[in-house]
Design a protein around this nucleic acid. Structure first.
Lengths: 208, 208
DNA sequence: GAAGTCAGTGAACGGACGTACACCCAGACT
DNA sequence: AGTCTGGGTGTACGTCCGTTCACTGACTTC
């Protein structure tokens, strides 16, 4: 591997590192990270197997880097939703639209999270679950800022967990569905989120 | 392998077949089915690798058998919920309790579904997703029979999908949580299901 | 411009894998 | 009783794997 004009050495290293991450993301979509071999990744990138060690000491460590990368995509999505300060009534519709766009644009990252959350090497799986938990808390904080409803902290957590679960489930379905069927799934998700919010609002006054 | 007193030949074969399935279920909980080797399974069962072929022609085919087995567990759970004709107001509480019991008793099957739904070999993953879809429809039919609410067929599907998603998500959390923390997850699931149902009931009158 | 650093090379290893094949021998069939 | 059937055995193969080691040569440092 030499790959065109590297300029500085650090720059070239970073370029290869990114190529390794991209290759691993692509290949693991077919087999899962746990069944991915260091040699496959090296072959895909066009380097010799031993060169892999210049960047990561194992597939697991590479996996942890992919967790970081993938959750950066997820947070970018949240930022994209918040951008433009949508009115409360529009938040759900906007969120679902943005979700569809980001899943299409960053398919690999979303697929990685959905997959490795349930099946990766233990350390990777735990990292994904931990990050998802943080993400849930972040969402709960966002919900707390809404001018509608006055939920208790605990109810907010439960609600955020329910929403994240529904979204992850939607993402999994999106990933398994050809382009032309995806809008129907997004419409369904919108309906579900509305149901959840309506239920949560009612909940407070009726059962709490 | 010869294993004590076989009696008839078919009986002995069935016994080995079950041992193979059990071993594969146990081992795949650590690595995922996609990273499971035929030799590992054979070693665990105590037979020579080539004897594996007397029962399955590949790990994938074994996986499909595990899909059947696992969904049989899932349906047994549904039957267990229905048994005793719980009053509408108790259905959620009873369902959640039964869920907890069955996840504990058939941990392997539930873990298999949760895992391979997102990560298995393609044919296995598709089989799991297909079975889950059938299960959703079955649940929708159950919901339609309830004396509360009058949902449209489409809304029933959407609602069933939301419920199944929430339950699967709960199962995944249960599987990652030590015994003493599981009741809290079940309580949370109960709250979430109540929110969903309240929302769905409200939904019909407000938005449909 | 000499010395040093380090991403990438290439050969080699021991081990695990899927699968082919010839074989064995206890239960089933006639 | 004699033959057949088929689950399980044992050996052997070619391939892929992770990891070791000594190396090279372009960029960096002084």
């Amino acid at each position: 591997m030499v790959e065109s004009k590297p300029q500085t050495r650090a720059e070239q290293k970073e370029r290869t590192r990114r190529a390794v991450l991209a290759a691993a993301l692509r290949l693991s979509e077919e087999t899962g990270l746990g069944a991915l071999s260091l040699r496959q990744v090296a072959r895909e990138v066009g380097i010799v197997p031993t060169a892999f060690y210049r960047h990561f000491s194992s597939i697991e460590e590479l996996g942890l880097a992919l967790v970081d990368e993938s959750f950066e995509s997820l947070r970018a999505m949240l930022r994209d939703v918040r951008r433009g300060n949508p009115a409360p009534a529009e938040i759900i519709a906007r969120s679902v639209t943005v979700l569809g766009e980001h899943v299409r644009a960053q398919r690999g990252h979303f697929a990685f999270i959905a997959r490795e959350r349930a099946s990766g090497p233990r350390v990777v799986r735990d990292a994904v679950r931990h990050q998802l938990e943080l993400f849930e808390r972040e969402l709960a904080a966002d919900l707390a800022r809404l001018p509608v409803g006055r939920w208790s902290t605990e109810d907010l957590q439960v609600l955020a967990n329910l929403i994240v679960g529904a979204v992850v489930s939607t993402v999994e379905d999106l990933l398994a569905t050809p382009r032309h069927g995806q809008q129907a799934l997004l419409d369904r998700a919108q309906k579900q989120l509305r149901m959840i919010v309506v239920g949560a609002l009612q909940w407070r006054s009726d059962y709490d």
